[in-house]
Nucleic acid binder design. Structure first.
Length: 484
RNA sequence: GGGGGCGUAGCUCAGUUGGCAGAGCAACGGCCUUUUAAGCCGUCGGUCGAAGGUUCGAAUCCUUCCGCCCUCACCA
């Protein structure tokens, strides 16, 4: 490795000694690689720039593959077409170097569109070698830690992140067209709220105050509802101080949407329309695959109440009126661990999460959750034991929850107090505090509203078929390495 | 944090029962004026993740540690 770098450093010194700059500046391109193919004209003069990814020498000539963001174009380098400085460069070219080339288009004997190079500039000399050209870069750790190499070596990675960008753009377009306002609210919060996750803690020196990276933008967005911003969304990062997994990264991208005078059902329609629109636009189809599984996003999606879903799954019609002991026995029989302190509802929910949810492959809205499970949502008027929320499940995992938001400040305060009382003792200062600023805003009057949140990384996984969240995040979190 | 798997050259990978660390690509030198993973001849390149132990002898067996992957737990 050090030898390879030393060799290339020597080439840099030699070029510099010849008065050539191995790290060139601005280069005027007249065409991208893809256009050389699509707008081919025999003899047309073009200038291209990009990275050398292959070099095939043939004595006094050489073929090189030059890659830019649009694709690949072959260069044909003949010594008798070049002179002086260019020959010095040619003699010291390495794979991975970034060069500019000028010449005319032609087609080789074997039928490949190429550039007969008459001008060659070195734009950036690579000191380190590229991953192997045929097998590419497979080692997952290197791919995640050195994403630049992954992007160079594995074409489909660049394609996936382009697709991610399009998905995000289509989401914004969809919401903007419907009159939603995109906003940015604090990432650094004195009291982390809006979710029940462990936050990252930090400290703001100038204010001499502890701060937290946000776990959700929810409370700030609701303050905007109070302020008269009736249709609002934020599409940005959340941070949660939790474990890593195939579907969890500590910083992840969340879309939260609120619509005044709407409710849970308004949001359900919005989410369905949004995902259908985005999938149709960026994938051109509503038929997706996740591994071996086929997923059909054609609307309308199934809607089923939580109680029905669980009872049907278990084949026990009056499940919810069975005694706790019987529920516990059923759960144990399914291999679940049941604590003595768990209520019937909690036991049921364990069954729901572990046994029922994984079977929901096609998009399904689960409605009317038991009130105990979702303390911050609004109760159903006709059924105070249930709460007016939905959860969208696709491919066995939660993709988006939705709520009829609570807008009663007194009830909100009671629930905060209840929640604060149940916090574990290790909660840092600030975490257990009640967000008085938020309550004050609510007391000014918050319109009834529907709210929803979509995990963008998981949506991208769904739409791209990626198996791990690390494959849809450019720089996923890994344990820092001591030295390299 | 628990369980399982993996870690060998810059990259992709072999390595038998514990017996001289290998191949292809990349790199370096040579030949070659239309190649396509160009070809041919030659050369260089290793803390076998780290440390310790067993052994005449360890990439290989044992222990501990580090990193990654899978999985469970945690997780609005």
């Amino acid at each position: 490795m050090e030898d390879l770098r030393a060799q290339r450093r020597k080439k840099i010194e030699e070029l510099t000694a010849l008065g050539l700059n191995p790290f060139g500046g601005r280069f005027r391109r007249s065409a991208e690689a893809a256009a050389c193919h699509s707008d081919y004209e025999e003899g047309k003069e073009v200038s291209v720039a990009g990275r050398l990814t292959a070099l095939r020498g043939h004595g006094k000539t050489a073929f090189a593959d030059l890659r830019d963001s649009s694709g690949k174009i072959q260069l044909y380098l003949r010594r008798d077409n070049l002179e002086g400085a260019e020959l010095e460069i040619l003699d010291r070219l390495d794979l991975g170097d970034i060069v500019g080339a000028r010449g005319e288009l032609f087609t080789t004997r074997k039928g490949e569109i190429s550039i007969m190079v008459r001008g060659l500039t070195l734009l950036s000399k690579a000191l380190r070698p590229l991953p192997e050209k045929w097998h590419g870069l497979k080692d997952r750790e290197t791919r995640y830690r050195s994403r630049h190499l992954d992007l160079i070596a594995n074409r489909e990675v660049a394609d996936l992140f382009r697709l991610r960008s399009r998905i995000v753009r289509e989401i914004r377009d969809f919401l903007d067209r419907r009159g939603f306002l995109e906003v940015e609210t604090p990432m650094m919060q004195p009291i982390p709220g809006g979710a029940a996750a462990r936050p990252f803690e930090t400290f703001y020196g100038a204010l001499n105050a502890p701060m937290f990276l946000r776990i959700a933008p929810e409370l700030y967005l609701k303050r905007l509802l109070v302020g008269g911003v009736e249709k609002v969304y934020e599409l940005n990062r959340n941070f949660r101080n939790e474990g890593l997994s195939r579907s969890h990264n500590p910083e992840f991208t969340m879309l939260e949407i609120y619509e005044a005078y709407g409710d849970c059902r308004t949001m359900m329609e919005l989410v369905e329309n949004l995902i259908v629109k985005v999938a149709g636009t960026v994938r051109g189809t509503l038929s997706l695959t996740a591994g071996e599984t086929a997923i059909d996003l054609t609307p309308p999606w199934r809607r089923i109440r939580y109680r029905e879903l669980v009872a049907d799954f278990l084949g026990i019609g009056d499940w919810f009126s069975r005694p706790r002991e019987e529920m516990a026995a059923e759960a144990s029989g399914r291999g679940l661990e049941i604590d003595a302190g768990m209520s019937g509802i909690e036991i049921t929910h364990e069954i729901y999460e572990k046994c029922v949810e994984p079977t929901l492959i096609q998009p399904t809205f689960v409605l009317d959750f038991p009130a105990h499970l979702v303390p911050l949502a609004r109760l159903k008027e006709d059924d105070p034991a249930a709460v007016d929320v939905f959860e969208l499940v696709v491919n066995g995992t939660e993709l988006a929850p939705g709520y009829s938001e609570l807008n009663d400040p007194l009830e909100q305060r009671r629930r905060f107090e209840q929640q604060a009382g149940s916090r574990p003792p290790d909660a840092a200062a600030g975490k257990e505090k009640i967000d008085e600023d938020f309550l004050e805003a609510m007391e000014t009057g918050m319109p009834p509203a529907g709210g929803t949140g979509i995990g963008i990384d998981r949506l991208v996984m769904l739409l791209t078929g990626a198996a791990s969240i690390r494959d849809v995040i450019l720089f996923p979190q890994l344990r820092p390495k001591e030295n390299k």
